[in-house]
């Protein structure tokens, strides 16, 4: 359905490439995600695939069309949802969809039903200019479904949405995927990639570092982790640790970039240097050094909580690319 080979793109027409030597394929009915931090080149890649940016170097085939010679008719088969919503502010939600639907040469879905799908039926006849960001995003999203695309491009489909709406969108994508729609999505949200994608590609600084299914990645790179929270007396930490402790807020969230061996601290009982610190730390069970460290902690510290954890895609991402996903 999609074939990309040796894709390079430079906005400035020099050797400052926003994407470098990218190659991948998406089979029919597959859902493929580009996962990477902001500025990695995800949108640039999608925009070349949808013809919004001209293909300069490399070979790209999309739904049977050579993107060196894109044809507008191909968009009868494609759906494109944008990272930044883009709807006509002076038209109502319904008018936006009615206008866009009539540009297709293929059967289209009923606009009102689509609005209902994302909870916009109440505001169908309100001008889009009066909408919140989330509402505009939903309108942009359902607009991309009008022509029942066989290949669906979703650029950050849930970014910036409140969790309830994000979950609605996720469910819609899931359902379409189950019905055989081929999906290309970009995201920096590992949960989304994990849940929706048959395969993900890790992209950093315009380079595709690795492609595999989330499950394989976890098997290959994921390690059994143990998360331990323990109390450490002030005297046991050195000066530098105390400085860190003072800055770091209460127990950091494990999703927030804590890989193996990461330490989170919180001061217990107020002022630095006087009370005890609550430490949260991850230990890998496959790294002998960390196993030893874990044993040491278990032997010498007062343990508050202890869990085993599976590696998340994000942790694997950090491990593979050395970069965080934010």
């Amino acid at each position: 359905m999609v074939k990309v080979e040796g894709l390079y793109y430079s906005y400035t027409n020099d050797d400052k490439y926003a994407v470098k030597d990218i190659s991948f394929e998406i089979a029919e009915g597959e859902s493929f995600g580009l996962l990477g931090p902001s500025g990695a080149g995800k949108s640039t890649t999608q925009n070349i695939l949808t013809g919004l940016l001209p293909l300069k170097t490399g070979e790209v085939q999309v739904a049977g069309y050579d993107m060196h010679h894109p044809k507008r008719e191909m968009f009868n088969k494609l759906g494109v949802s944008f990272e930044q919503s883009n709807v006509y502010g002076k038209l109502t939600a319904l008018e936006n969809l009615e206008f866009y639907r009539k540009l297709f040469d293929v059967p289209t879905l009923d606009p009102m039903e689509l609005l209902t799908l994302v909870g916009l039926e109440q505001v169908a006849s309100k001008k889009a200019a009066t909408f919140s960001k989330g509402m505009k995003h939903r309108l942009t999203f359902v607009r991309s479904m009008l022509n029942q695309p066989i290949l669906w491009f979703l650029d950050e489909p849930t970014t910036g949405l409140d969790p309830a709406i994000a979950s609605v969108i996720k469910d819609i994508v899931k359902e379409k995927k189950e019905r055989g729609t081929t999906i290309f999505l970009t995201t920096h949200n590992m949960f989304l990639a994990d849940e929706l994608c048959d395969r993900v590609g890790f992209i950093v600084d315009g380079e595709l570092r690795l492609i595999d299914s989330p499950r394989n990645l976890k098997l290959k790179y994921g390690e059994k982790l143990v998360e331990v929270e323990y109390v450490e007396e002030a005297a046991q930490g050195d000066e530098a640790n105390q400085a860190v402790a003072a800055e770091q807020p209460i127990v950091s969230d494990s999703a927030d970039g804590s890989g193996t061996g990461t330490v989170g601290r919180a001061t217990i009982g107020g002022g630095t240097g006087t009370g005890a610190h609550l430490i949260r730390r991850h230990f890998s069970l496959v790294d002998p050094v960390e196993v030893a460290a874990l044993q040491e902690v278990l032997a010498t510290r007062k343990i508050e909580t202890m869990h085993t954890k599976e590696a998340t895609l994000e942790e694997i991402f950090i491990k593979v690319t050395g970069r965080k996903l934010v």
Binding site: F75, V80, V87, L103
Partner: peptide, 19 residues
Amino acid sequence: VEEKQDNTLSAMNVAPVSR
């Protein structure tokens, strides 16, 4: 200008409408 401002131009560019 409005199409530029709201970037609806991009949406038109991924619709089956010739330039």
